[in-house]
Amino acid sequence: MLAAFKKLLINWIAHFLIMWIAITAFTLIPYLYHVHIWGNYIYNTDGTPVTGWQYATNLNSDLFVVAIFIFLTEVVRQFLFKKRHFIVFIAGCLLTGMISCAGIVYLRPNVFKQQGKLSAVEPILYIAVYAFVYTIVRDYYLQNRNKKLQRIQQSENELHALKAQLNPHFLFNALNYLYGTALKEKAPNTAQGIDTMSDMMRYTIHGMQENFVQLGDELKFMENYLKLQQLRLPIKDNIKISSQIDSDDHHNQQKIAPLLLLPFIENAFKYGISIDTPCEVRIKIVVDKNELHMEVFNTIVQNRTEVSGNNTGIKNTIKRLDLLYPDSYRLDHQNTGLAYNVSFRLKLSS
Rank of each mutant, 00 (worst) to 15 (best):
T73R: 10
V75T: 09
V75F: 07
V76H: 03
V76T: 06
R77G: 12
R77M: 04
Q78W: 02
Q78V: 05
F79P: 12
F81G: 04
K82Y: 13
K83L: 12
R84I: 15
R84G: 11
F86N: 10
F86Q: 08
I87A: 12
I87G: 15
I87M: 07
I87D: 13
V88K: 15
V88T: 14
V88A: 12
F89I: 03
I90P: 12
A91N: 03
G92F: 00
G92C: 02
G92P: 05
C93W: 08
L95N: 02
T96Y: 01
T96M: 00
G97S: 01
G97W: 00
G97I: 00
M98E: 02
S100G: 06
S100I: 03
C101D: 08
C101Q: 14
A102I: 08
G103R: 04
G103S: 07
V105G: 05
Y106I: 07
P109Y: 08
P109D: 06
P109N: 11
P109I: 10
P109V: 15
P109L: 12
N110W: 06
V111K: 04
F112Q: 01
K113Q: 13
K113S: 11
K113A: 09
K113T: 14
Q114V: 15
G116T: 07
L118Y: 03
S119R: 06
V121C: 00
V121I: 02
V121N: 00
E122K: 09
E122N: 12
P123Y: 03
P123N: 04
L125R: 15
L125V: 08
L125I: 15
L125N: 13
I127E: 00
I127A: 01
Y130S: 08
Y130N: 04
A131M: 02
F132N: 01
F132S: 01
F132E: 02
V133Y: 01
V133A: 05
Y134N: 14
Y134F: 10
T135L: 12
I136T: 11
I136C: 14
V137P: 03
V137S: 08
V137N: 14
R138K: 11
R138L: 10
D139N: 14
L142P: 10
L142T: 15
Q143Y: 02
N144M: 11
N144R: 15
R145W: 06
N146W: 10
N146E: 08
K147Q: 10
K147T: 08
K148Y: 07
L149G: 03
Q150S: 10
Q150Y: 14
I152C: 03
I152D: 06
I152W: 09
Q153K: 13
Q153E: 13
Q154A: 02
S155T: 08
E156L: 08
N157M: 11
N157Y: 13
